[in-house]
Design a protein around this nucleic acid. Structure first.
Lengths: 203, 203
DNA sequence: TCGTAGTGGAACACAACTGTTCCATGACGG
DNA sequence: CCGTCATGGAACAGTTGTGTTCCACTACGA
């Protein structure tokens, strides 16, 4: 198949980028707004994506690809599970507005698919190698990861004075503390955990 | 002013409850849906809230009141800053769907207002008494608090098999780890009522 | 120069939501 | 029994977004 002329590729990409940017702020924004943001006529937008649903699924596919690319860059096989997860977090942070979109789960729903599985594998590796608290279920760890990722992105957006680097620093700090049984400079036996030992937690 | 008849109060409250529940899932839901969920005619809804904006601001006011009430129940003055923040978190968790609404910041915008200030005060107290890592800015701590609160609520909603108590437990664990520089036993205040005197853990 | 690919604008019908008006009904107290 | 109170339904006009059609314009290669 011909590679759709290059011009069409660029137009299509511009529409997708605009869609991601606008939908992140307002998942109910109109196609007219998206077309305008992409500097494209609404007619042209409809020429590329016949219905709104088509655009949405294309955005989902694009987002999924970016996620996979980020995961590859993070080299999840390297180091402990906890380290890999933090590297992934840095890569994800660069996804920008896509974070809002994924987190609000407005567009598609199959963001992760195959991804989900490999991330769980990384977390379980962390459970075994001691870099992630084994008490925390994998899907809970993922929830915390995504929520803090989104929080960091929103935090950066609301505070132009704080640098991307600074926010990323706060993020990795709180995240690693959340997961690690006691990652930072082994502060010593936590295991005592007074008060909660006997309570029949967990069912 | 008369207390608006009691019946009207109940109707008004039913509409507000339905609105909070539906808007949490879909901030763009129609007034017809809200009226139906409240088991009320659309006409009646318009009789209480002339325009959509009126309903939205009433929801914002209602939410703000619930926030203040939760903060009062948390007795923020007691114990270390970190302990107070975790107690607040438990109270906030009970707000249910309101969490989604507040977090997405769709409705009004003045959710916190006066609240914001007192929360920052609690966090700064935690900075001083050593229960919250002084390196973390107050607003970042708040961001993490809200995002994980929302994540926990969503987590519970997607997994009917996990108990409210279990999720709350995961939440306080990861949250306290996020904030505390070295406060392993900070998760103690699970009971709440008993063991007051132990609070003197600050340095 | 001509034909084509890619585009944009104008117009249209259609659907959904909104806000309003008018009227009918059931409950309740005097 | 009658009046009011609170309500629900039906109908309407107005707005906004959607999806489609048709036509005009520009750039570019043969």
């Amino acid at each position: 198949m011909p590679v759709t002329s290059g011009v069409k590729n660029r137009t299509r990409q511009a529409i997708l980028d605009a869609a991601i940017g606008l939908l992140a702020d307002n998942p109910a924004c109109s196609l007219g707004d998206i077309a305008a943001a992409a500097q494209v006529g609404r007619t042209t937008l409809h020429r590329y994506f016949a219905e709104r649903a088509d655009l949405m699924s294309a955005v989902a596919v694009e987002g999924g690809q970016r996620l996979v690319r980020a995961a590859r860059l993070a080299e999840l096989d390297r180091g402990t599970g906890g380290e890999a997860l933090l590297r992934l977090c840095r890569e994800y942070f660069d996804l920008g507005p896509l974070l809002s979109l994924i987190f609000s789960e407005q567009a598609g729903e199959c963001w992760e698919e195959q991804d989900e599985g490999s991330l769980v594998a990384v977390i379980e590796r962390g459970h075994r190698d001691g870099s992630i608290d084994p008490v925390l279920p994998s899907d809970w760890v993922l929830s915390v990861l995504w929520s803090q990722l989104y929080a960091a992105w929103a935090y950066l957006g609301e505070r132009p004075e704080s640098s991307r680097h600074h926010v990323l620093d706060l993020l990795t700090r709180t995240l690693s503390h959340s997961f690690g049984p006691r990652t930072p400079t082994a502060t010593e036996p936590v295991r005592g955990e007074a008060g909660r030992g006997e309570a029949g937690r967990d069912r």
